[in-house]
């Protein structure tokens, strides 16, 4: 357990990567949005998708964590299991912190009338329209899913190089096409459509969480035999 915590501390040895840069991305994307809002002579609500910038940063971090931090952890004689545990714990904590930050800034955003310019950055209408914890859950699930996509893809690359990625990519494509064909064959498109329409913010967050969990399981099993 101690070593799992140390994996977390090891990645925070350079605070810049996990704390500094995300904060700068958030601040920069927000600042840019705010300037644009202020310039737009328009009194209606102005929404910005800038908040997702930091989410994509997580995707990149997921990749880097495996291609560079994993080999380093092997040099420090850390088991794959411990590395995985510590890394996932770290990303969960950071994702949770950013979600909380977004949530709090969202409250502030509403209290200040959209930062004085009727802007929407953190408290996107689509997200805050529901129970109070909804944006929290949504941000968290999205970040974790993105992280694991990057992490697993990098793990597959580590284990089977380009061939692995191509096969995995093809597998996903074939799976999707197969599913589409099957749905077609069964004539179930109306049901699918109904299902999609019936989704709300919380259920999407739930689905993303399930995806993240599946990706986590896949990542772990792939990592078990990965070489640095």
């Amino acid at each position: 357990m101690n070593r799992v915590v140390n994996v977390l501390r090891m990645q925070l040895v350079n605070r810049w990567i996990f704390i500094g840069i995300p904060l700068i991305i958030i601040a920069a994307s927000f600042g840019l949005s705010w300037v644009i809002w202020a310039l737009v002579p328009f009194d209606e609500v102005k929404a910005s998708g800038g908040s997702q910038a930091v989410l994509w940063y997580f995707f990149a971090l997921g990749i880097q964590s495996l291609t560079l931090t994993f080999p380093f952890s092997q040099g420090l004689s850390i088991t794959r299991k411990t590395f995985f545990g510590g890394t996932v714990a770290l990303f969960s904590l950071i994702a949770l912190a950013i979600s909380l930050l977004f949530f709090l800034l969202g409250l502030l955003e509403k209290a200040t009338g959209g930062w004085g310019v009727n802007g929407q950055f953190f408290a996107l209408e689509w997200l805050v329209d529901g129970p109070w914890y909804q944006p929290l859950a949504f941000y968290l699930a999205t970040m974790m899913a993105l992280f694991f996509i990057g992490f697993w893809a990098a793990t597959i690359y580590k284990r089977w190089q380009t061939t692995g990625l191509v096969v995995a990519g093809l597998g996903v494509a074939v799976g999707l096409v197969g599913a589409a064909l099957w749905i077609n064959f069964q004539g179930q498109w109306p049901q699918i459509g109904e299902f999609l329409v019936s989704q709300n913010q919380m259920s999407i967050a739930g689905l993303l969480a399930v995806v993240a969990l599946v990706l986590a399981g896949g990542s772990y099993l792939t990592l078990r035999r990965a070489i640095p």
Binding site: R3, N6, R9, M10, Q11, V13, N14, W16, I17, Q64, T67, L68, T69, P71, F72, G75, L76, S77, I78, P228
Partner: peptide, 24 residues
């Protein structure tokens, strides 16, 4: 076992690497 072609996290300096090693 630090291998000849050992990889380090991109942003790490030697100081970071030593501090990490001290943890383990």
């Amino acid at each position: 076992f630090i291998r000849e072609s050992q990889k380090y996290p991109d942003s790490f300096s030697a100081k970071h690497a030593f501090r990490s090693a001290a943890l383990f």
